[in-house]
């Protein structure tokens, strides 16, 4: 009560939080009191040391993820998934069309020819051989012109060769009725195949089905990566 010192006010004084009148009173006392001046110095040094403590950092980010950073990937994911499906469909159509044209003893490759080797170019007099299914005289082969149903100007025309109807050629004399039916069926398949190609834009230089399959896989990969990134975000 009768303590003349200002020890209790020193921290508030140090922090400049005293009212002006109290501040003037403490300042006046400090000029004459060595003990209070020493205590003030010690408090100031203590505060300085507390302020000098190191600042540890957290081991991980503590800020919640609120902003949808990867939103732009959503349309990419959807478009990629749709593109994958579309490419897969085109792949199937192309594969069916290709295999249809290769019925019965075509080239060994499952998807036959490449764009540089058009399957249906009629001017090249390319012939697709059909092995008669029944009865199977193994050595009987009938050559069927591919483009008799729908001749189209193509590679042959491009290099100046007139587009002539493919000539029918018998490689072996086999005029039995089942063989004729087989030949007719092969002709129909070839005609259908050509129609499909035109409908789907495969035209005279179709991409191989493998290309469509690759595009489908690529689009599916894009969709999967976008999906994974969106989930991770």
């Amino acid at each position: 009560m009768n303590d003349p010192h200002v020890s209790r006010d020193l921290s508030v004084y140090l922090d400049a939080e005293l009212a002006p009148a109290d501040r003037a009173r403490v300042s006046a006392h400090l000029e004459d009191c060595a003990r209070c001046a020493l205590q003030l110095a010690e408090l100031r040094a203590t505060a300085t040391m507390i302020a000098a403590l190191p600042s540890p950092r957290p081991s991980r980010s503590l800020v919640p993820s609120l902003a949808p950073r990867w939103n732009w990937l959503r349309p990419v994911r959807s478009l990629s998934a749709m593109a994958s499906g579309a490419f897969l469909m085109v792949f199937l159509v192309a594969a069916v069309a290709q295999s249809g044209s290769d019925l019965g003893g075509g080239p060994a490759s499952p998807f036959g020819r490449t764009a540089a080797q058009p399957a249906a170019a009629p001017t090249a007099a390319e012939q697709v051989t059909l092995e008669a299914a029944s009865p199977p005289p193994a050595d009987v082969r009938v050559a069927v012109p591919v483009a008799t149903a729908q001749p189209a100007p193509a590679a042959g025309a491009a290099d100046g060769t007139p587009a002539a109807p493919a000539e029918e050629q018998e490689t072996e004399d086999a005029a039995s009725a089942p063989e004729e039916r087989g030949a007719a069926a092969a002709t129909a398949v070839a005609a259908d195949t050509e129609g499909v190609r035109q409908v789907y834009g495969l035209g005279s230089e179709p991409l191989t089905p493998l290309v469509w399959l690759g595009l489908a896989a690529l689009a599916a990969l894009f969709a999967a990566v976008a999906h994974w990134r969106l989930r991770a975000a």
């Binding site: 921290s11 508030v12 110095a41 408090l43």
Partner: peptide, 26 residues
């Protein structure tokens, strides 16, 4: 708040003094 800050500083100062440190003005 005034009381907490003053007592806290004083307690820290006392720990340091107990370790043998003192102000140069002393």
């Amino acid at each position: 708040v005034k009381s907490r800050i003053h007592r806290g500083r004083l307690a820290v100062r006392n720990v340091l003094v107990a370790r043998g440190w003192r102000s140069s003005a002393g």
